[in-house]
Simulated assay, not measured.
Amino acid sequence: MAERIVVLLAALALVAGCGGPVAGTARPVQLGDGERAKFKEYYERVNKAGDEGASQQAKLLKDTQHPDFRQKTCDLRGATIKVEPTWTTLRADADWTPAGEKSHPSGAVYVVAVTITIRQKDQIIGSQIGSMHVVLLDDEVYGFAPCLGG
């Protein structure tokens, strides 16, 4: 069990983008209400799916995986994540590429500070503050599998 928790916490660290600092200068993004609502809805859907169970959240994360990186999915091993963004930190991050990748994602890339809590069934097994990347592409919001370093 301890080994499983270590693996899940390592996945959480990668989700949070804790592999290093985020490049660039933090400047609030000037998004319209429609775009900002799409980002908020994305995280609400992720959290709602997690409330419904690990398989529902895994399906949603797979379905909303950025199209350029569909083959890069991860197994959270029955755990779920809850993501609480700090919206005042949302900013563009045009130079970002997922960890271990050479190509930049299609679309407009944004980063936001988040608090991520990972649960195994009804038990919290970790919480961390970090950053997550999301992309607005063809009027849809896409994310990245937790193992890609969010």
Rank of each mutant, 00 (worst) to 15 (best):
L60T: 08
V83M: 01
G20D: 13
A49T: 03
D68P: 03
L8D: 13
G130L: 03
E101N: 08
D139M: 04
D75Y: 05
V114W: 05
D68Q: 02
V29L: 11
A49G: 07
S55M: 12
T80I: 05
T64E: 11
L12P: 14
F144K: 01
G53F: 03
G50C: 04
Q71I: 04
V114L: 13
L9E: 10
R70I: 06
L90S: 04
T25F: 08
L148P: 02
K38R: 13
G17T: 08
S131F: 12
G50P: 10
V134G: 10
V135R: 02
C147Y: 06
C18S: 13
R91A: 11
R27M: 14
L9A: 08
S131Y: 14
G149P: 12
A99S: 10
R77Y: 08
G100H: 08
Y42H: 09
A94R: 09
R4F: 04
K102R: 11
D51T: 03
L61R: 11
I116A: 10
A54Q: 10
N47G: 03
V111Y: 04
A16H: 14
C74V: 08
S106Y: 04
R119E: 15
W87Q: 04
A23G: 11
L60P: 07
W96P: 05
G126N: 07
D33N: 10
R119F: 15
L90Y: 00
L148V: 00
L60G: 08
R91P: 08
A58E: 11
G107Q: 00
A92C: 06
A145N: 00
S55R: 09
T25P: 06
S55V: 13
E44T: 15
R45Y: 05
T73S: 02
V83S: 00
M132D: 03
V109F: 00
A49V: 01
K102E: 09
D68G: 02
V141E: 12
P67M: 03
I129V: 13
T97Q: 09
V22L: 14
R36F: 12
K72F: 10
D93R: 01
I81L: 02
R77A: 12
D68H: 08
W96Q: 06
V22F: 12
K59S: 11
V114Y: 09
